[in-house]
């Protein structure tokens, strides 16, 4: 009796498994073919001296070379600067905007949400070319406005100066990164338990206290998610660099992703490019784990 039930349920599980995999099959073909396979190819190729002409196992050779490559080190430092500046700026700013527009009337809330999402929709290339014009030394708006306001006394070549180029990139990256976090924060604030907010107000808490004691802890998962996706995006900053500065002047805007592209596709050093890619993936994973730990720790007390 018992045996026959378990036999029947085993048959049921088998049937469910087969039908589940049939539903999954089309997706799995693409997922395995174009995500999982290249992932392993990336890892594998990173141990080879792999160019147009060579294919030779060199163990950790590419990784060793990486840390002796001064341009790579510079690109790594630039990338970390971008991440360390952009991620907190994006998170704090989008929380502020999210909190500011959440209580508004539905129409104005939706209006502002669209406006801040606009740079994402406009597309990296269109955004990059218009900023390039605005940053132009002779015909750009920035010099005109700042000159008019008396902030600068001679025209600055914003993207052509080592001191300013990276900051210009960060500014543009910032405007294209806040759209999604704001949408997420507005949604998360809408999910905060209204009775808790009411209760704290009855107890005489100020708006600020209510925010920190009630709302902030309950939107913590959203904050974590925003930190992680913004970190991943900022680490991969590539298109803006390629379109605006090509890593210059004097490598001051080289990022890891840009340098990977340069090594792998311009110099055809696939093995070396892949090794840097693996390194970048590990760094991103470490950052995500740290953020996860920190926000969890902050949640406990």
């Amino acid at each position: 009796m018992h045996n026959s039930i378990s036999k029947r349920s085993r048959a049921l599980i088998r049937r469910e498994t087969i039908s589940a995999y049939l539903f999954l099959l089309p997706s799995l073909i693409f997922f395995i073919g174009f995500v999982i396979v290249p992932m392993f190819m990336c890892l594998g190729a990173s141990f080879f001296n792999y160019t147009m002409t060579d294919f030779e196992f060199i163990g950790l050779g590419n990784y060793v070379e990486m840390f002796q490559d001064s341009i790579f080190i510079k690109a790594f430092v630039n990338t970390v600067v971008i991440v360390v500046v952009a991620v907190p700026a994006v998170t704090v700013f989008s929380l502020w905007v999210g909190a500011a527009i959440y209580p508004m009337h539905a129409v104005s809330r939706s209006f502002f949400r669209c406006v801040f999402y606009l740079p994402v929709v406009t597309g990296t290339v269109a955004v990059a070319v218009v900023w390039k014009w605005m940053f132009n030394k002779y015909t750009g708006l920035f010099n005109y406005v700042l000159d008019g306001a008396g902030v600068i006394d001679q025209n600055i070549s914003w993207l052509g100066d080592e001191k300013t180029a990276l900051w210009c990139i960060i500014l543009i990256l910032f405007t294209t990164s806040i759209g999604q976090p704001i949408v997420l924060y507005v949604a998360a604030l809408g999910n905060v338990d209204a009775s808790l907010v009411e209760a704290s107000k009855v107890d005489g808490a100020t708006n600020l206290q209510t925010f920190w004691k009630i709302k902030w802890p309950s939107i913590m998962p959203t904050t974590l998610y925003i930190l992680v996706i913004t970190t991943i995006n900022s680490f991969q900053c590539y298109a803006l660099i390629q379109l605006l500065t090509s890593g210059g002047p004097n490598h001051s805007t080289d990022t890891i992703m840009y340098y990977i592209y340069y090594q792998a596709f311009k110099l055809n050093r696939y093995g070396y490019g892949n090794a840097m890619g693996v390194f970048l993936a590990i760094v991103i994973a470490l950052f995500s784990i740290i953020q996860f730990r920190l926000t969890k720790a902050g949640n406990v007390d």
């Binding site: 174009f34 992932m39 190729a45 991969q236 792998a264 696939y270 490019g273 993936a281 994973a285 995500s288």
Partner: peptide, 13 residues
Amino acid sequence: AMALPKQVVLVPL
């Protein structure tokens, strides 16, 4: 896979 840096995979892709 979603947490993976998508662009890194482009070289082998």
